[in-house]
Amino acid sequence: GQVHVGDTTYHFPNPEEARKFAEKAAKENNLQVTQHGNTFKVE
């Protein structure tokens, strides 16, 4: 799974890890998570 936060892309071998990371980043920054397959975008 990939997580895009601003201009930075994080790669995770496990989509579940990617999702947890995205949700945590979104919560900390008052942002939203959008999911496209195994790619998550925090914005």
Results as ranks from 00 to 15, higher is better:
Lys27Val: 08
Thr8Leu: 14
Ala18Ser: 02
Gln32His: 12
Asp7Cys: 14
Val42Tyr: 01
Ala26Ser: 05
Thr39Ala: 10
Ala26Gln: 02
Ala18Phe: 01
Val33Asp: 01
Gly1Phe: 15
His36Leu: 12
Glu23Val: 08
Gln2Val: 15
Ala25Gln: 10
Asp7Arg: 13
Phe12Trp: 02
Ala25Asp: 02
Asn30Tyr: 06
Thr34Tyr: 10
Gln2Thr: 15
Glu28Gly: 07
Asn14Asp: 12
Asn29Pro: 03
Asn38Thr: 07
Gln35Gly: 05
Asn38Phe: 04
Gly37Lys: 05
Ala25Lys: 13
Phe21Glu: 02
Gln2Phe: 14
Glu16Ser: 08
Ala18Tyr: 00
Val5Asn: 03
Glu23Gly: 02
Glu43Thr: 11
Gly37Glu: 06
Gln2Ser: 13
Asp7Gln: 11
Glu16Thr: 09
Thr39Asp: 12
Lys27Arg: 13
Arg19Trp: 06
Gly6Gln: 05
Asn29Met: 15
Glu23Ser: 05
His36Thr: 10
Lys24Val: 08
Phe12Cys: 06
Phe21Arg: 00
Val42Gln: 00
Val33Ser: 02
Lys24Trp: 13
Gln2His: 14
Asp7Ile: 08
Pro13Phe: 08
Lys41Pro: 05
Leu31Gln: 07
Arg19Met: 07
Val3Gln: 00
Val3Ile: 02
Arg19Ile: 04
Arg19Thr: 01
Glu17Arg: 04
Ala18Met: 00
Gly37Val: 01
Pro13Ala: 13
Gln2Leu: 14
Asn14Gln: 04
Val5Pro: 00
Tyr10Ser: 03
Gly1Glu: 02
Glu17Lys: 05
Lys20Phe: 07
Ala25Glu: 09
Ala25Val: 15
His11Val: 09
Val5Ile: 15
Ala22Gly: 02
Gln32Asp: 06
Gly37Ile: 02
Ala22Thr: 00
His36Gln: 11
Asn29Trp: 12
Glu17Met: 13
Thr9Ser: 06
Asp7Phe: 09
Gly1Leu: 05
Val5Leu: 14
Phe21Met: 02
Ala18Lys: 01
Asn38Trp: 02
His36Pro: 01
Phe40His: 04
Thr9Phe: 12
Ala26His: 01
Leu31Ala: 12
Gln32Gly: 07
Pro13Lys: 11
Lys27Gly: 07
Thr8Arg: 15
Lys20Glu: 11
His11Trp: 14
His11Cys: 14
Leu31Met: 15
Phe40Cys: 04
Ala25Trp: 15
Arg19Gly: 03
Tyr10Glu: 03
Gly37Phe: 04
Glu17Gln: 10
Lys27Pro: 00
Asn30Met: 07
Thr34Pro: 00
Arg19Gln: 08
Val5Asp: 04
Val33His: 02
Asn29Asp: 06
His4Arg: 13
Ala26Phe: 02
Asn38Lys: 04
Arg19Pro: 01
Gln32Met: 13
Gly1Asn: 07
Thr39Val: 14
Pro13Thr: 11
Ala26Asn: 02
His36Lys: 09
Asn30Lys: 09
Glu16Asp: 11
Gly1Asp: 03
His36Arg: 09
Gln35Met: 07
Phe40Gln: 04
Lys41Thr: 15
Ala25Gly: 02
Leu31Trp: 12
Asn29Leu: 15
Glu17Thr: 09
Glu43Tyr: 10
Val3Leu: 00
His11Pro: 04
Ala18Arg: 00
Lys27Tyr: 10
Asp7Lys: 13
Gly37Arg: 03
Glu43Pro: 03
Gly1Pro: 10
Tyr10Met: 05
Val33Thr: 03
Pro15Ala: 14
Lys41Ser: 12
Val42Ile: 08
Pro15Tyr: 14
Gly37Met: 04
Leu31Tyr: 08
Thr39His: 15
Glu16Gly: 06
Pro15Cys: 15
Phe21Ala: 03
Asn30Pro: 01
Gly37Trp: 02
Glu17Val: 08
Glu16Phe: 07
Glu23Lys: 04
Tyr10Gly: 02
Phe40Lys: 04
Arg19Phe: 07
Tyr10Trp: 06
Ala26Val: 02
Pro15Asp: 05
Val3Ala: 04
Lys27Asn: 08
Thr9Gln: 08
Gln35Leu: 05
Val3Ser: 00
His36Glu: 12
Asp7Gly: 14
Lys41Asp: 13
Lys20Val: 11
Thr34Val: 12
Ala22Trp: 01
Glu16Asn: 07
Asp7Leu: 10
Ala22Met: 00
Asn38Ile: 04
Asn14Cys: 08
His4Thr: 14
Thr34Asp: 04
Thr9Asp: 05
Lys41Ile: 15
Pro13Gly: 09
Leu31Asp: 04
Glu23His: 08
Thr9Arg: 08
Phe12Thr: 01
Gln32Val: 14
Gly37Leu: 05
